[in-house]
Amino acid sequence: MVRRIASVILPWILGSVVGFLVLIHFFVDIPELGPVLNGLVEWATIIAAFAVLVGLINLVCHHGKRVLDREPGWGYSLALLGAMIAVLALGFRPGSYGPGDPLVQWVFRYILEPLATAFFSLLAFSLATGIVRALRLRNLQTILVTVAAVVVLLGQVPITSGWAFLRPIARIQEWVLRVPAAAGMRVILIGAAIGAITTGMRVLLGMEKPYSE
């Protein structure tokens, strides 16, 4: 019984009370609630930061063991640990401003961001293979998606604006984005919003307990 109170009932009551207060404060400006709820949001940030710290310790233990045991792919683990130590050292060195330090920012701007951009540039190739795969299925849905994708792509490429015979494609692309795409996206957004509301309410009312299930 004590275990149930500690692991199910207490988290539910705390979660529901805090959740309802934050929800009300989100929609209605109640000045008295402001400092309390801002404090709660700060707590959430601290808890998240602590979870990151625990995760980091776990990561060091896991990859450290892989390196010590010379498991397959241990070189990657060593690279990960090296990169982690380097960034931490830059952030914690004497005189550093932490995450805002110019050296740490340099790492983000000139290493992490170009890597992310390069990685996400692969999306174009993934989209091309996806379209080929979809065309193989030969059903109405995939054909419509493919035709719409091609029209929108052609309509947005700057080179088509100079070619008179491709101008109608730009107009069709505009219509596709403004009418069917906007209507479809609104349907999806409204449906997802209803789903999000009921999911949130189920958690707040304790019908769903993601923290104790």
């Binding site: 493919t146 957004l189 997802a192």
Partner: peptide, 25 residues
């Protein structure tokens, strides 16, 4: 997926998918 940035890729997957509100049910 339910986000506008993820949903358009579902039909080109050629796989089974849950669209928008379906992920909540």
């Amino acid at each position: 997926a339910a986000a506008p940035a993820g949903v358009p890729f579902l039909p080109v997957s050629g796989e089974e998918f849950l669209l928008g509100e379906e992920i909540f049910v």
